[in-house]
Simulated assay, not measured.
Amino acid sequence: MCSGIRAAVCAAEVGTVLLAAAAFVLSFTTLRDLAQRAGVETGLAWLWPLIVDGIIVVSTVSVFALAGTRVVWYPWLLLVAGSSVSVTANAIHAVVAAEPGVPPLLAEAVAAVPPIVLVASTHLTAILIRHSRTVYTAASHNHLPENEEPAPAPQTSDPQPPVSHQIPNLSLIRPSKKQRPLVLPRLCRNRQRLTQRCGAKSPLSCVSKV
């Protein structure tokens, strides 16, 4: 379904671009002839319609680029001004260059169609481009290839219990008989005999000698 929507949007974009190109060519030809009638040199007369109709295209794109900002009023002002100048200039040319017997109102109405279509088609083209980007982005996020399931979430292993850094109670650790330190000799257990041999009043001096 998304592919059908994108195809329809692309077809509409192509159609609006063609309409805008046709309207631009008609308006361009009319405004160039009006510039030549106003005294602009033939080699430079094409610049005047390029400026008038070009500002319509540039301001329309700028309106969409600056949408939601505080300065969007400026491209809107340029769009309205450029459209007004283009429609008015095409209508004036229709009155000046019309064949005798043609009602001026009819000539003005026919001449005003190209600039109006140029404005409408350019604006519509910008809307379609934005919409196509939105549809394409949504389809790319929601698209999942066939026979493919989303990858399961990785399972994290149970965290190991934290290692205790408490200092063990040394009083509860009893070394075996083989690991017990050497005890004082039996001579040191008897204070009288120890003092007689070492000639010291404290048994610690005997221990140091041992």
Rank of each mutant, 00 (worst) to 15 (best):
A111R: 07
L128D: 06
R32A: 11
A23K: 03
Q179F: 10
P161F: 08
G82F: 09
K209T: 13
P49N: 11
L182M: 13
V119E: 01
L79R: 15
L105K: 03
E41S: 06
N169I: 02
I116T: 15
V207D: 01
W73D: 00
P154I: 07
H93S: 14
R70L: 10
D33F: 02
L78K: 01
I127C: 09
P114K: 04
L19V: 15
L31P: 04
E108A: 15
K178V: 07
V163E: 12
E99R: 13
A126V: 03
S157D: 15
R193E: 05
S205M: 11
A8E: 08
L66W: 01
T88A: 15
S208W: 03
P185Q: 00
A20M: 11
L187S: 04
V210D: 03
G39P: 09
R174T: 14
D158L: 15
A94P: 05
A11N: 02
Q179E: 11
Q36D: 02
L78C: 11
K178Q: 09
Q179M: 06
A22H: 10
H93C: 11
E149H: 03
V40M: 05
A7V: 01
A97R: 05
V102M: 06
V61Y: 08
I167T: 09
S84D: 02
A7P: 00
T134I: 10
A45V: 04
P75A: 03
C206F: 06
A111E: 04
N90T: 05
N142G: 09
R130M: 12
I51Y: 12
S59K: 06
V113C: 12
E13W: 12
L78T: 01
S86R: 12
G4L: 07
W76M: 11
T125K: 08
P145I: 02
P159S: 13
I129G: 14
P181N: 00
V110H: 07
I55Y: 04
Q196S: 05
I5C: 11
L184P: 12
S59Q: 06
P75W: 00
I51K: 08
A112P: 00
A94C: 12
A67E: 14
Q196C: 00
P49I: 13
L44F: 13
L182A: 15
P168H: 01
S164N: 14
R130V: 15
S205L: 14
R133I: 04
V61F: 12
P100H: 10
G101I: 08
V71D: 03
P161K: 13
L79S: 14
A35E: 01
T30H: 09
T60M: 11
V61P: 00
A89G: 12
T125Y: 14
L50R: 06
V96A: 05
D53T: 15
A23Q: 06
R70Q: 06
L118E: 04
V9L: 15
G68F: 04
P154M: 02
G39A: 06
R70W: 10
Q166H: 10
V85P: 00
I55F: 10
